[in-house]
Measured scan of single mutants.
Amino acid sequence: MDVFMKGLSKAKEGVVAAAEKTKQGVAEAAGKTKEGVLYVGSKTKEGVVHGVATVAEKTKEQVTNVGGAVVTGVTAVAQKTVEGAGSIAAATGFVKKDQLGKNEEGAPQEGILEDMPVDPDNEAYEMPSEEGYQDYEPEA
């Protein structure tokens, strides 16, 4: 019985440690998101679009440190934060509304985080759909 109880105690310690790591990862992701939003706020009209992409990228980098179902929630929060940063930029006159959601080359930025393969159960990952990809044929 002692062996059984000791095993359960060790398992509990492992769960607590994993929860603490997840909590730490979420806190880091939130900190990076805040950094990115402050970065966007300090940019001029020309830099705002690039700044919004930076927020998304920093958040995406930190999301990889967070495991399990938390990833889905962090990704949703990050996307809403990026959308909010863009709205703030438009409201303050840093950028025109028609410039939001495009990178410096004018290509749409939507789907940055949505296409990231995420499995809350950590069982399997699927690649994003290939609808947006084109076949590449090298020139002879």
Rank of each mutant, 00 (worst) to 15 (best):
A107I: 03
A124K: 06
K21H: 00
A19Y: 10
D115V: 05
I88H: 03
T81N: 02
A18W: 13
S129Q: 10
A56M: 13
N65P: 04
T75Q: 07
Y136T: 10
P138S: 05
V95D: 09
V40E: 00
G86K: 10
G31V: 01
A124I: 13
K21S: 03
A76W: 10
T92G: 11
A124V: 10
G67N: 02
M116K: 08
G25Q: 08
D98I: 14
V82Y: 09
K6R: 14
N103R: 10
G41C: 13
L8Y: 07
E137M: 03
A76V: 07
T75W: 06
G84E: 08
V49N: 05
K32P: 00
G41P: 00
V95Q: 04
G47H: 14
A76L: 15
L38T: 06
G93I: 05
E105W: 00
T75I: 11
A27P: 00
V3F: 14
V26A: 02
T75R: 12
A90Y: 05
T72C: 13
G111K: 12
V52K: 01
V15N: 00
V66R: 03
K97N: 13
L8F: 13
V26R: 00
G7A: 15
M1G: 15
M1W: 15
T22P: 00
A140S: 05
V49T: 04
T75G: 08
K45C: 10
E104K: 01
Q62D: 01
V95Y: 07
T75H: 09
M116G: 04
N103T: 13
M116F: 14
K96H: 15
E83W: 13
T64Q: 09
G84Q: 14
E130M: 08
K96C: 07
Y136L: 11
G41E: 01
A85F: 13
D121P: 08
G84H: 10
G84V: 12
P117I: 09
A107S: 10
D2T: 00
V48M: 12
G132K: 11
A78S: 03
E114T: 02
Q109C: 04
M127W: 04
E123C: 14
V49G: 05
K10N: 10
T64K: 10
K10M: 15
Q24L: 07
V26W: 09
E13P: 00
A89G: 02
Q109Y: 06
V82A: 05
V55G: 01
V55W: 13
K12L: 15
M5L: 15
A78K: 01
A19Q: 01
D135T: 04
P117L: 06
G47L: 12
A90S: 06
D98C: 07
A17M: 06
V48D: 00
Y133K: 12
K34E: 00
V49C: 07
K60R: 10
V55S: 01
D119K: 00
Y39F: 12
G36T: 04
D115M: 07
E83T: 07
G67T: 12
K10S: 03
V40K: 00
K34W: 12
E139M: 13
P108F: 06
E20Q: 08
E104D: 10
H50I: 14
E131D: 13
Q24Y: 03
E123F: 04
K12W: 15
M127R: 01
N65H: 14
V3I: 13
K97R: 11
G106E: 03
G101L: 15
E105S: 11
P120L: 03
K32Q: 04
Q79E: 13
L38V: 08
G51K: 11
Q24S: 07
E137V: 02
V118M: 03
E28Y: 12
G106P: 06
V77K: 01
G51F: 15
T59D: 00
K12P: 00
A91W: 14
A30D: 00
S9P: 01
V16I: 05
E126N: 08
T81F: 14
A11Q: 00
Q109P: 01
A89I: 14
D121G: 10
M1L: 15
L100F: 08
F94T: 10
E28M: 06
D135N: 07
N103D: 08
E61N: 05
A69T: 02
I88E: 04
V77P: 02
Y136R: 02
K21N: 02
A69P: 02
A85K: 01
V52Q: 00
V77E: 01
A56R: 07
A91Y: 11
P138M: 10
A27K: 05
Y39K: 07
A29I: 15
V74A: 06
K60D: 01
D119T: 06
P120A: 10
E137D: 04
D135C: 05
K12V: 12
G73I: 12
G25Y: 13
G84K: 10
M116V: 00
V49F: 12
A53H: 07
A78V: 12
K34D: 00
K6H: 12
V48L: 08
G86F: 11
Q134H: 11
G25D: 03
S42R: 03
Q79L: 12
K10D: 02
E20M: 11
A124T: 13
T64P: 08
G67L: 14
L38Q: 05
K21F: 08
K43F: 14
G41R: 10
E83I: 02
H50R: 04
K58V: 14
G132W: 08
G132V: 08
K32F: 13
V66L: 12
I88G: 01
L38M: 07
T92E: 08
E139F: 09
G111N: 06
V74P: 01
Q109A: 02
G14Q: 11
K43C: 09
E139P: 09
K10R: 14
E114W: 14
A124Y: 06
G93D: 02
S9L: 11
V70S: 03
A107V: 04
V71M: 04
V16F: 11
S87M: 04
G73Y: 14
G47M: 02
G67S: 13
A11L: 10
A124M: 12
A91H: 04
I112K: 14
A56E: 01
A17V: 03
D98L: 12
G14C: 11
E46K: 03
G106Q: 14
Q24N: 02
E131S: 12
L8G: 00
V63N: 01
S42M: 13
K43M: 06
E114F: 05
V77R: 03
G86T: 11
V16A: 11
E105H: 15
V15Q: 00
E126P: 07
P138D: 08
T92I: 15
I112W: 13
A140L: 11
K34N: 01
V16L: 11
E123S: 03
Y133E: 08
E57I: 09
V74T: 05
E83S: 06
S42K: 06
M1N: 15
S129H: 07
T54Q: 07
V15E: 00
A69I: 05
V55H: 01
L8K: 00
P117Y: 05
T64E: 06
G41D: 00
Y133Q: 09
K80Y: 06
N122Y: 05
K6M: 14
G93M: 11
V74K: 01
K32E: 00
A140E: 04
G25W: 14
K58T: 07
L113C: 07
D115A: 11
A11R: 00
M127L: 10
N65Q: 09
Y125N: 15
A17K: 11
E61F: 10
D119E: 06
T54E: 02
A124N: 14
G106I: 09
N65A: 11
K97S: 14
L38F: 03
D121V: 01
D121H: 07
K21Q: 06
Y39D: 01
T54Y: 09
P117G: 11
F94I: 12
A69V: 12
Q62Y: 12
V70E: 02
Q109I: 13
E46R: 08
K23M: 09
Q134Y: 07
T92D: 03
D98Y: 12
G101F: 10
V82D: 03
S129A: 02
D98Q: 01
G51P: 01
V37I: 12
V26M: 02
E131P: 11
V77F: 14
A56N: 01
N103I: 04
E130A: 12
Q79T: 13
Q62P: 03
E123A: 07
D115E: 05
P120K: 08
Y133P: 06
V95N: 06
Q24C: 07
T33H: 01
A89R: 07
E110H: 01
D115T: 05
Q134C: 11
F94E: 02
D121R: 01
P120V: 02
